[in-house]
Protein backbone atom coordinates (compact mmCIF):
# COMPACT_ATOMS: atom_id res chain seq x y z
CA UNK A 1 0.00 0.00 0.00
CA UNK A 2 2.79 2.25 0.88
CA UNK A 3 3.88 2.16 -2.74
CA UNK A 4 0.99 4.42 -3.83
CA UNK A 5 1.58 8.00 -2.78
CA UNK A 6 -1.08 10.57 -2.11
CA UNK A 7 0.16 12.67 -4.98
CA UNK A 8 -0.20 9.74 -7.38
CA UNK A 9 -3.69 9.01 -6.12
CA UNK A 10 -4.84 12.55 -6.69
CA UNK A 11 -3.85 12.39 -10.34
CA UNK A 12 -5.78 9.21 -10.99
CA UNK A 13 -9.36 8.82 -12.13
CA UNK A 14 -11.91 7.17 -9.89
CA UNK A 15 -11.49 3.81 -11.60
CA UNK A 16 -7.71 3.88 -11.48
CA UNK A 17 -7.72 4.87 -7.84
CA UNK A 18 -9.96 1.97 -6.88
CA UNK A 19 -7.69 -0.48 -8.69
CA UNK A 20 -4.47 1.04 -7.36
CA UNK A 21 -5.72 0.72 -3.80
CA UNK A 22 -6.34 -2.97 -4.29
CA UNK A 23 -10.09 -2.76 -3.94
CA UNK A 24 -10.81 -4.86 -7.00
CA UNK A 25 -8.89 -7.87 -5.77
CA UNK A 26 -10.80 -8.46 -2.58
CA UNK A 27 -9.81 -11.67 -0.83
CA UNK A 28 -9.66 -13.06 2.63
CA UNK A 29 -6.26 -13.48 4.19
CA UNK A 30 -4.80 -16.93 4.55
CA UNK A 31 -5.06 -17.06 8.31
CA UNK A 32 -8.77 -16.39 8.39
CA UNK A 33 -9.60 -19.28 6.16
CA UNK A 34 -8.21 -21.83 8.59
CA UNK A 35 -10.68 -21.04 11.37
CA UNK A 36 -13.01 -23.89 12.03
CA UNK A 37 -16.55 -23.15 13.03
CA UNK A 38 -18.06 -24.56 16.16
CA UNK A 39 -21.00 -26.68 14.91
CA UNK A 40 -23.10 -25.64 17.90
CA UNK A 41 -22.57 -22.01 17.08
CA UNK A 42 -24.53 -22.53 13.88
CA UNK A 43 -27.67 -22.26 15.96
CA UNK A 44 -27.10 -18.54 16.21
CA UNK A 45 -27.38 -18.32 12.51
CA UNK A 46 -30.67 -19.93 11.69
CA UNK A 47 -32.81 -17.86 9.39
CA UNK A 48 -36.34 -17.18 10.56
CA UNK A 49 -39.40 -19.24 10.04
CA UNK A 50 -40.92 -19.13 6.55
CA UNK A 51 -44.39 -20.66 6.49
CA UNK A 52 -45.75 -22.32 3.40
CA UNK A 53 -48.89 -20.38 2.58
CA UNK A 54 -51.65 -20.97 0.04
CA UNK A 55 -52.78 -17.80 -1.74
CA UNK A 56 -56.23 -19.31 -2.28
CA UNK A 57 -56.78 -19.64 1.46
CA UNK A 58 -58.31 -16.32 2.38
CA UNK A 59 -59.39 -14.82 5.67
CA UNK A 60 -60.38 -11.47 7.14
CA UNK A 61 -59.44 -9.78 10.40
CA UNK A 62 -61.53 -6.98 11.84
CA UNK A 63 -58.86 -4.89 13.51
CA UNK A 64 -61.19 -2.30 15.02
CA UNK A 65 -60.77 -3.32 18.66
CA UNK A 66 -57.32 -4.84 18.35
CA UNK A 67 -53.94 -3.33 19.15
CA UNK A 68 -51.18 -3.34 16.54
CA UNK A 69 -49.37 -6.09 18.44
CA UNK A 70 -52.48 -8.27 18.45
CA UNK A 71 -53.02 -7.72 14.73
CA UNK A 72 -49.42 -8.58 13.87
CA UNK A 73 -49.48 -11.67 16.10
CA UNK A 74 -52.74 -12.73 14.46
CA UNK A 75 -51.21 -12.34 10.99
CA UNK A 76 -48.30 -14.55 12.05
CA UNK A 77 -50.65 -17.17 13.48
CA UNK A 78 -52.79 -17.20 10.34
CA UNK A 79 -49.70 -17.51 8.15
CA UNK A 80 -48.65 -20.46 10.29
CA UNK A 81 -52.02 -22.05 9.52
CA UNK A 82 -51.31 -21.62 5.83
CA UNK A 83 -53.49 -18.62 5.00
CA UNK A 84 -51.98 -16.86 2.00
CA UNK A 85 -54.47 -14.03 1.57
CA UNK A 86 -55.25 -11.92 4.61
CA UNK A 87 -57.59 -8.92 4.61
CA UNK A 88 -57.39 -6.36 7.40
CA UNK A 89 -60.64 -4.46 7.97
CA UNK A 90 -60.98 -1.15 9.81
CA UNK A 91 -57.29 -0.34 10.38
CA UNK A 92 -58.30 3.22 11.36
CA UNK A 93 -54.81 4.68 11.04
CA UNK A 94 -53.02 2.16 13.26
CA UNK A 95 -49.23 2.30 13.21
CA UNK A 96 -46.78 -0.46 12.28
CA UNK A 97 -49.39 -2.76 10.73
CA UNK A 98 -47.95 -5.82 9.01
CA UNK A 99 -44.30 -4.98 9.69
CA UNK A 100 -41.53 -7.55 9.57
CA UNK A 101 -43.25 -10.15 7.34
CA UNK A 102 -40.38 -12.11 5.80
CA UNK A 103 -42.31 -14.50 3.64
CA UNK A 104 -44.70 -14.44 0.70
CA UNK A 105 -48.25 -13.34 1.47
CA UNK A 106 -51.12 -11.39 -0.05
CA UNK A 107 -52.02 -8.70 2.44
CA UNK A 108 -54.98 -6.42 1.72
CA UNK A 109 -55.62 -3.52 4.04
CA UNK A 110 -59.11 -2.07 3.67
CA UNK A 111 -58.53 1.43 4.98
CA UNK A 112 -55.76 3.74 6.11
CA UNK A 113 -52.59 2.96 8.01
CA UNK A 114 -50.49 5.16 10.28
CA UNK A 115 -46.73 5.39 10.53
CA UNK A 116 -44.37 2.63 9.42
CA UNK A 117 -47.04 0.69 7.55
CA UNK A 118 -45.72 -2.65 6.27
CA UNK A 119 -42.09 -1.66 6.86
CA UNK A 120 -39.20 -4.14 7.11
CA UNK A 121 -40.85 -6.73 4.87
CA UNK A 122 -39.31 -9.23 2.50
CA UNK A 123 -41.66 -10.81 0.01
CA UNK A 124 -45.33 -9.96 0.54
CA UNK A 125 -47.68 -8.34 -1.95
CA UNK A 126 -49.58 -5.63 -0.13
CA UNK A 127 -52.54 -3.55 -1.32
CA UNK A 128 -53.69 -0.67 0.83
CA UNK A 129 -57.10 0.68 -0.11
CA UNK A 130 -56.60 3.91 1.76
CA UNK A 131 -53.94 6.33 2.86
CA UNK A 132 -50.66 5.64 4.66
CA UNK A 133 -48.78 7.80 7.16
CA UNK A 134 -45.05 8.39 7.36
CA UNK A 135 -42.36 5.91 6.35
CA UNK A 136 -44.51 3.39 4.54
CA UNK A 137 -42.55 0.44 3.16
CA UNK A 138 -39.49 1.50 5.13
CA UNK A 139 -36.48 -0.78 4.44
CA UNK A 140 -38.54 -3.16 2.29
CA UNK A 141 -36.33 -5.90 0.80
CA UNK A 142 -38.66 -7.31 -1.84
CA UNK A 143 -42.34 -7.61 -2.72
CA UNK A 144 -44.84 -4.98 -3.79
CA UNK A 145 -46.91 -2.41 -1.94
CA UNK A 146 -49.69 -0.57 -3.77
CA UNK A 147 -51.40 2.35 -2.06
CA UNK A 148 -54.64 3.61 -3.57
CA UNK A 149 -54.69 7.07 -1.96
CA UNK A 150 -52.07 9.51 -0.65
CA UNK A 151 -49.00 8.73 1.41
CA UNK A 152 -47.11 10.67 4.08
CA UNK A 153 -43.51 11.80 4.20
CA UNK A 154 -40.36 9.64 3.99
CA UNK A 155 -42.21 7.25 1.71
CA UNK A 156 -40.01 4.21 1.09
CA UNK A 157 -37.17 5.41 3.32
CA UNK A 158 -34.04 3.26 2.88
CA UNK A 159 -35.93 1.04 0.44
CA UNK A 160 -33.76 -1.86 -0.67
CA UNK A 161 -35.90 -3.69 -3.18
CA UNK A 162 -39.35 -4.37 -4.53
CA UNK A 163 -41.95 -2.02 -5.98
CA UNK A 164 -43.55 0.65 -3.83
CA UNK A 165 -46.47 2.31 -5.56
CA UNK A 166 -48.65 5.22 -4.46
CA UNK A 167 -51.46 6.28 -6.78
CA UNK A 168 -51.98 9.60 -5.02
CA UNK A 169 -49.51 12.23 -3.84
CA UNK A 170 -46.81 11.67 -1.26
CA UNK A 171 -45.21 13.95 1.35
CA UNK A 172 -41.62 15.11 1.62
CA UNK A 173 -38.38 13.11 1.56
CA UNK A 174 -39.70 10.36 -0.67
CA UNK A 175 -37.09 7.63 -1.20
CA UNK A 176 -34.62 9.13 1.27
CA UNK A 177 -31.49 6.94 1.57
CA UNK A 178 -33.03 4.62 -1.02
CA UNK A 179 -30.77 1.64 -1.71
CA UNK A 180 -32.61 -0.16 -4.48
CA UNK A 181 -36.03 -1.12 -5.73
CA UNK A 182 -38.57 1.13 -7.40
CA UNK A 183 -40.84 3.86 -6.10
CA UNK A 184 -43.74 4.94 -8.32
CA UNK A 185 -45.83 7.97 -7.40
CA UNK A 186 -48.97 8.83 -9.37
CA UNK A 187 -49.24 12.37 -8.01
CA UNK A 188 -46.82 14.93 -6.61
CA UNK A 189 -43.94 14.63 -4.17
CA UNK A 190 -42.63 17.14 -1.62
CA UNK A 191 -39.24 18.64 -0.84
CA UNK A 192 -35.97 16.71 -0.58
CA UNK A 193 -37.24 13.69 -2.48
CA UNK A 194 -34.45 11.25 -3.27
CA UNK A 195 -32.24 12.83 -0.60
CA UNK A 196 -28.97 10.85 -0.36
CA UNK A 197 -30.40 8.26 -2.73
CA UNK A 198 -27.94 5.44 -3.33
CA UNK A 199 -29.48 3.12 -5.87
CA UNK A 200 -32.80 2.22 -7.42
CA UNK A 201 -35.33 4.16 -9.45
CA UNK A 202 -37.98 6.63 -8.46
CA UNK A 203 -40.76 7.78 -10.78
CA UNK A 204 -42.95 10.78 -9.97
CA UNK A 205 -45.76 11.37 -12.49
CA UNK A 206 -46.69 14.76 -11.00
CA UNK A 207 -44.57 17.61 -9.71
CA UNK A 208 -41.54 17.43 -7.43
CA UNK A 209 -40.72 19.84 -4.60
CA UNK A 210 -37.51 21.69 -3.99
CA UNK A 211 -34.06 20.12 -3.62
CA UNK A 212 -34.92 17.04 -5.62
CA UNK A 213 -32.20 14.38 -5.45
CA UNK A 214 -30.07 16.36 -3.01
CA UNK A 215 -26.67 14.68 -2.43
CA UNK A 216 -27.68 11.59 -4.32
CA UNK A 217 -24.88 9.04 -4.72
CA UNK A 218 -26.45 7.11 -7.54
CA UNK A 219 -29.79 5.91 -8.83
CA UNK A 220 -32.27 7.58 -11.16
CA UNK A 221 -35.28 9.84 -10.64
CA UNK A 222 -37.88 10.40 -13.37
CA UNK A 223 -40.29 13.30 -12.99
CA UNK A 224 -43.31 13.83 -15.23
CA UNK A 225 -44.27 17.30 -14.04
CA UNK A 226 -42.49 20.41 -12.83
CA UNK A 227 -39.39 20.29 -10.65
CA UNK A 228 -39.24 23.18 -8.17
CA UNK A 229 -35.47 22.93 -7.82
CA UNK A 230 -32.70 20.38 -7.98
CA UNK A 231 -30.60 19.62 -4.92
CA UNK A 232 -26.83 19.70 -4.63
CA UNK A 233 -25.07 17.31 -6.99
CA UNK A 234 -28.26 16.25 -8.83
CA UNK A 235 -28.13 16.81 -12.58
CA UNK A 236 -30.47 16.33 -15.49
CA UNK A 237 -29.62 13.56 -17.91
CA UNK A 238 -30.92 12.59 -21.34
CA UNK A 239 -33.97 10.33 -21.38
CA UNK A 240 -32.90 7.39 -23.51
CA UNK A 241 -35.06 4.92 -25.38
CA UNK A 242 -34.20 2.34 -22.78
CA UNK A 243 -35.52 4.66 -20.06
CA UNK A 244 -38.73 5.19 -22.01
CA UNK A 245 -39.20 1.47 -22.48
CA UNK A 246 -38.68 0.82 -18.80
CA UNK A 247 -40.99 3.67 -17.79
CA UNK A 248 -43.71 2.47 -20.14
CA UNK A 249 -43.49 -1.04 -18.81
CA UNK A 250 -43.50 -0.06 -15.13
CA UNK A 251 -46.22 2.58 -15.42
CA UNK A 252 -48.44 0.30 -17.47
CA UNK A 253 -47.90 -2.53 -15.02
CA UNK A 254 -49.45 -0.46 -12.22
CA UNK A 255 -51.93 1.47 -14.36
CA UNK A 256 -50.24 4.83 -13.80
CA UNK A 257 -49.47 5.66 -17.44
CA UNK A 258 -50.06 9.39 -17.97
CA UNK A 259 -52.13 10.43 -20.96
CA UNK A 260 -49.17 12.32 -22.41
CA UNK A 261 -47.05 9.18 -22.47
CA UNK A 262 -43.51 9.10 -21.15
CA UNK A 263 -41.63 11.37 -23.57
CA UNK A 264 -41.97 14.45 -21.37
CA UNK A 265 -40.35 12.88 -18.30
CA UNK A 266 -37.22 14.51 -16.94
CA UNK A 267 -34.44 12.21 -15.84
CA UNK A 268 -32.30 13.16 -12.85
CA UNK A 269 -29.07 11.40 -11.91
CA UNK A 270 -26.16 12.03 -9.56
CA UNK A 271 -23.57 14.59 -10.65
CA UNK A 272 -21.05 12.46 -8.72
CA UNK A 273 -19.05 15.53 -7.72
CA UNK A 274 -19.48 14.72 -4.06
CA UNK A 275 -18.18 11.20 -4.44
CA UNK A 276 -14.70 12.33 -3.54
CA UNK A 277 -15.20 15.67 -1.90
CA UNK A 278 -11.56 15.75 -0.78
CA UNK A 279 -10.32 15.81 -4.35
CA UNK A 280 -12.48 18.69 -5.54
CA UNK A 281 -10.87 21.81 -6.91
CA UNK A 282 -10.95 24.73 -4.44
CA UNK A 283 -13.80 26.50 -6.22
CA UNK A 284 -15.91 23.37 -6.39
CA UNK A 285 -15.78 22.96 -2.62
CA UNK A 286 -18.41 25.65 -2.23
CA UNK A 287 -20.89 23.16 -3.63
CA UNK A 288 -22.20 22.15 -0.24
CA UNK A 289 -22.07 25.43 1.67
Amino acid sequence: MASVSDADLKKMSQEERVTALGMRTEQLTGKTLYIEFDPEAEERFTYPWAPDVDFNKRTEIDTDDMTTTEVNAKIRDLMGEGYGTIVLKNPRGKHSLGVGILSRLNLIIEGSCGYFGVGLIDGPNVRINGRVGWSCGENMMSGTIVIEKNAGSTFGAALRGGDLVCRGSVGSRTGIDMKGGTILVGGDTGALSGFMMQRGRMVVCGNAGKNLGDSMYDGTIYVGGEIKSLGVDAVEAELTDLDKKWLTRKLTQYGLMPQKGVDHFTKIVAGKQLWNYDNLEPTEKKLIL
Binding site: R44, G100, I121, N139, A157, A158, K179
Partner: peptide, 13 residues
Protein backbone atom coordinates in the same frame (compact mmCIF):
# COMPACT_ATOMS: atom_id res chain seq x y z
CA UNK B 1 -29.03 6.58 10.40
CA UNK B 2 -27.67 5.51 7.02
CA UNK B 3 -29.30 2.04 7.26
CA UNK B 4 -26.38 0.72 5.24
CA UNK B 5 -26.98 -2.98 4.81
CA UNK B 6 -29.91 -3.01 7.23
CA UNK B 7 -31.85 -6.19 6.63
CA UNK B 8 -34.92 -7.39 8.55
CA UNK B 9 -33.74 -10.97 8.06
CA UNK B 10 -30.63 -10.13 10.05
CA UNK B 11 -32.59 -8.16 12.64
CA UNK B 12 -34.42 -11.37 13.52
CA UNK B 13 -31.09 -13.02 14.33
Amino acid sequence: QSRYGFNPNHLIL
